[in-house]
Write a protein that binds this DNA or RNA. Sequence first.
DNA 1: TTTATAATAGCAACCGGTTTCTATACCATA
DNA 2: TATGGTATAGAAACCGGTTGCTATTATAAA
Lengths: 340, 340
Amino acid sequence: MRNRSVTTLNDVADEAGVNKSTVSRVLNNRLGNGFSVTEEVRKRIFAAAEKLNYRPNLIAKSLTLQTTRMIHIIGGHYALSDLGNIYQTVVNSATRVMDCSEDVFDVTVDMSHHDKQTSELPPWKIDGAIILAKANPSTLMELEDDQRPYVVVNGPAGTSGSSVVPDDECGTKIAIHYLAELGHRKIAYANSRPDYLVGHSSLAVRHQTYLREMKELGLSIAPGHDEWLKSAENFLTAAVLENGATAVLAYGHMEGLNLMQAGHKLGIAVPGRLSVLCFCDQQAAAAMSPLLSFIDLKSSDMGKIAAELLLKHIKKPSDAEPATIKLAEQLVIRSSTASP
Amino acid sequence: MRNRSVTTLNDVADEAGVNKSTVSRVLNNRLGNGFSVTEEVRKRIFAAAEKLNYRPNLIAKSLTLQTTRMIHIIGGHYALSDLGNIYQTVVNSATRVMDCSEDVFDVTVDMSHHDKQTSELPPWKIDGAIILAKANPSTLMELEDDQRPYVVVNGPAGTSGSSVVPDDECGTKIAIHYLAELGHRKIAYANSRPDYLVGHSSLAVRHQTYLREMKELGLSIAPGHDEWLKSAENFLTAAVLENGATAVLAYGHMEGLNLMQAGHKLGIAVPGRLSVLCFCDQQAAAAMSPLLSFIDLKSSDMGKIAAELLLKHIKKPSDAEPATIKLAEQLVIRSSTASP
DNA sequence: TTTATAATAGCAACCGGTTTCTATACCATA
DNA sequence: TATGGTATAGAAACCGGTTGCTATTATAAA
């Protein structure tokens, strides 16, 4: 038995010559309320705990307390597999909020792959969950059944959960209008690369809004918008060289970077001959050397708001009116866009 | 009481009309060994569990079993706070190994900030830990006391733990020798930006090795190597413009990117007038548009090896000779380095 | 001196599982 | 019919804490 070497509450009680309940109350400072000890006993208990190097078993503790003070972030496998996408920022800013909360919550991220049918919830009792992008239906169901507060970031919530989403529709509009105002008449749309966040709503929303806005403004679209971006060179060849597009809106910064690079190779000057605009967040933008103009997805704000919302729900499960917060996206002009 | 809605082993036992010990044994397939049930009871128990949507409380479980089939990754707060650094790749590749392991282990990442004195271990009994860069002394102590297998990635282990580290000393040597062979005689070193991975050994190793190798090869160093990289422009002004350095080795890809950018602003052509080389990994390099040459830190390999090592230790705690695996770093030449 | 009250500390139940030990029913064999 | 082994299932202890309730002693008030 490996754990025979670990000192328990009983050991401390024996050493101090008192009952273990007394030790528990003293060490947890559960005085008052019809309980007290003499200063002498108090000292003896602390001395014993110190001498035996007592550390309470947190498992036993949370078994009785029925709370783990744990927030679990779900969807790491799906959302964090990609380097430097918005979700890492979400996780970081959410964690920061939890760290600074007056009552401490530990934050863990689930990274494992789970079957579509099974629940992604951990076996211990979490006090709340943050879901990145999307969760399995059974996960959502279990959260709802258990009445555990949760917030979905960048995806739809169930009936009793809250969600924080970027206003992709509005952001796409802003992007198209900005490019149109610069004087671009033929604007291409570079979709996501294959297998990235498959099934995520942002894929459809950005694409659909692009098509709608282009139509409304009477602009002409370029080929390639309706398929995965497999080869940035092929895309640019078709859209720019063969079809004369002067601007391209890219699904994400990786697509934007790839397009820049391909443009470089094909001799297409940016922004001289082609304006490149992409969806991205501050953190990723800061790491990019070519100063791409971008639509800021406000991922840091999303994480912060999600965490605050969750804390609020945890504190008062009573008035947990599920909220859906739509965050405005913001155009940040740098040096990859210009008039044609 | 939220948890009155949660079904326990007792509920299942009641529903099935048997004793909870029977349910426990059936659900955990603890047959044989003087215990068995009729097929009819077996079915009734499974039906009851299904009907009530029973999920065992892992906390209670690990209180007795002292094991959870969980791998915990420690140090997220410290290691994952930065966008796109090597640790995200480590986490991803380690998780992939665990997902594909024949016996399933769930992987969680601890993101919370912990005091220096307290343990970072979760309240449940983990079967193993991967520590990113470093852990609190008390965390290490507890792992050792409990005899739980763990592997440190990119940092030193305690007496009974294994570690996987990149051979930074060798990598730095390779970098300096490569630049020297290109013909550079004055090579600058751009240290990390402030507050990044404070106290991490790589900071000292790369810096010290740079100084030593430069001395041995009789090359001349440039100013700025001994302080944080606060302003890339100031750095280049001093090192290149005022002191004539023709190459710079940067601590990481962010420093490399910042230097490229600053060079661009100051009219210093890369690699025409200045060669830029940095420490980086494949994944981050793939996301960078300027094709920086780099010393590959092999982060994906580190994660993979760490996970495999951990699995081995979990399977046979007996022959857990702690290993220290040093991974060779590799020079990848792209287009930011050339002869002066 | 008796009684009320506060201070001090222990007993035992409980959290949700696992496991050892024990008990009953059933069947085959002598 | 007596005997013994086996299949089946339950009772209870245990993991390491927390906490409601009770018991004893000391002190103050009557």
